[in-house]
Design a protein around this nucleic acid. Structure first.
Lengths: 171, 171
DNA sequence: TTTCGCATGTAATGTGTTACATGATTTC
DNA sequence: GAAATCATGTAACACATTACATGCGAAA
């Protein structure tokens, strides 16, 4: 049930509409938790029913701005401190590595080199994003910076691993 | 639809029953792709309907051993070479990092140190697994070794990052 | 003879994706 | 006035989890 807590966490930082939240999922949380528009609006409805968030203002075009309630903040805290993170690993790209034996050596090599290049491009993108962000703008970005650093280290690791794996393929 | 290809990939290496596959998901693929018993049996049925696998033998206790068909092998190859890996990132543990500002510094520190210790334990577990496996036993394990190395590097990175993040928390 | 491991399946529920459907406001 | 952006919502489908339900065969 992390989508629920992702929404709660974003609203803990500032009030926002479903539309605002979607943009946050697409930018800040893009590499950490993805959500579709349907999910966000659906979850906001459920959270409001459970009194964990409430409509704090209504604007033009039917805009509904939501804010977190005290109960919502308590639930977020409980989740952060008492609930063990769910660790369901599912990596399509790593799954394929298991089955590289089905490919010709050249095909396998191509696959891994693509992975390496993708990671390199991603690292470049993250570095750019890092430079473009106005840090100490809000408390969310302070910790978001930690997550971004994770992404950078992950990309780096992934590229190095893929290049190492290509070498292992030869013999 | 990677579950389908995970099953196909495992059956490409050797014939197996649903029960055998479940054990493979729990061991070899544990850190790469998880699947429940229901999913495995359900997918085997669908794959058989699509003639990508077939029952190659029946054994005691209603055991049905499945083997991959030529069409299944072709589909696996197509997936490996032509389908872009789906990269839907969802990390519960990293999501929490974004919201660490909701916690006291001590709680946040505790969270990150737990993450570091978990990664250290995981690395130790992977090293043990590595030592226990009979390499060059089958072609699957040859490439499984590449995935295992990825897991080791990931654990290492995760621990180092968490310890670094704890330091960032202070000021 | 009882326990453990092998073995398969279904049903209900929860979560996530894609597509559809609509319309107001702002900007050019 | 046309286009882009803001803004919300629903429906159908796909995929994943949990719980239920059953029974054979081997070993202790």
């Amino acid at each position: 049930m992390s989508l629920r807590h992702a929404v709660l966490g974003l609203l803990a930082d500032r009030r926002a509409s479903g539309y605002d939240l979607m943009k946050l999922f697409e930018t800040s949380l893009a590499h950490v938790w993805s959500a579709t528009q349907s999910q966000v609006y659906g979850e906001l409805g459920k959270l409001a029913d459970a009194d964990l968030v409430e409509v704090s203002a209504e604007g033009p075009r039917g805009r509904k701005e939501y804010g977190i309630t005290a109960a919502g903040r308590a639930e977020l805290h409980r989740w952060l401190t008492e609930v063990e993170p769910v660790r369901t690993r599912r990596s399509d790209s790593l799954l394929r590595v298991f089955f590289l034996g089905e490919l010709t050596p050249l095909e396998a090599r191509t696959y891994l080199l693509n992975e390496a290049e993708r990671s390199a491009r991603q690292l470049a993108g993250l570095r750019q994003a890092e430079a473009a962000i106005d840090w100490d703008e809000d408390p969310l970005s302070a910790h978001g910076r930690l997550a971004l650093e994770y992404g950078k280290r992950l990309s780096e690791m992934h590229e190095e691993w893929a290049r190492w794996a290509v070498e292992q393929l030869k013999p």
